[in-house]
Amino acid sequence: MSGAGHAHLRELNDAVLQVRDLEVTFGSGRAPRVQAVSGVSFDIARGETLGIVGESGCGKSTTGRAIMQMPPATAGSVLFEGDDLGAMSPSELRLARTRVQMIFQDPISSLNPRRRVRDSVAEPLDIWSRGTSAERRQVVDDILADVGIDPERAAVARPHEFSGGQCQRISIARALVLSPTLLICDEPVSALDVSVQAQVLNLLEDLKARYSLTMMFIAHDLAVVKNISDRVAVMYLGRLCEIAPSRELYEHPAHHYTRVLLDSIPVPDPEVIAVGHELVGDLPSPVDPPSGCRFHTRCPAADDQCRTEEPVMRAVGEDHYVACHHPLVTSVAIST
């Protein structure tokens, strides 16, 4: 099975991440097997931020975790700076993971409730015994200051003494302390208030520049993703639907699902009347996904071809690819 194809993969001389035909299946024995991610391929260039959007259950978080090999993918390959993470021995993987770090959605659950937060931030350095203890202390203090947390308070306080936004900052500090190359952000702001969300998004942008990070930003809110990403990939039910530079995706969405995602963002302006591209029905069960194009059960443009034949990624614009038989943007002649 080829999944959505590889037309959208780029010839990058400095790729940080190259994911090919990633497949993650859950459940074994008599439990129903759920293919959470099927045939997903994408790449991230150095210094780039790739956004991944989709509803819950679309496999976006599973993709992020499969890159970290937690748990590893059932099939497909994850090349990180050219090295196949899936083929590594446990000890090689432990070392490689220090260069790929992750932050999570729930800021409270991301921190050990019984440890002082400074210890949590210092933990990675202790594990790898990087530098002298004085150097380590300096690194931790600097990073805490960078994320806007008072190092002295962090030395004595436990997570419950901080707000959700502050806990998220602390998690970010812990992820950055090993100076990773790639930072995977799994819905880092969806549990936060809009005002705090803006603080954290701005902080991520600042840190990305300061620590020369490459980022993968997973979220369900396209407005948030568009703000922070250079390129955006849209996922639906374990498949990649569309990938494009973020402005292009917003201006010329090609997949009907992308259109719906865009329309469902509430606009903070009562004068704007909702266009009415609303999804009908619920997400189909991933245990028994629809045949052909997985979106056909809820797609206004679906026909017989969509029900039987699985669409493959094809170019519809400059660096803009869609897996749809009837895209909203007419195909552009680009040699692929």
């Binding site: 937690m70 993971r97 992750m102 959605q105 991301s110 050990n112």
Partner: peptide, 25 residues
């Protein structure tokens, strides 16, 4: 909880995760 996932991501061994992260809780 995610802090255990995070511990694994920073390279903690299983023993360290059990002793340092889980046991205190």
């Amino acid at each position: 909880r995610d802090f255990v996932t995070a511990a694994r991501a920073i390279g903690s061994s299983n023993r360290r995760i059990i002793v340092r992260e889980l046991l205190p809780n």
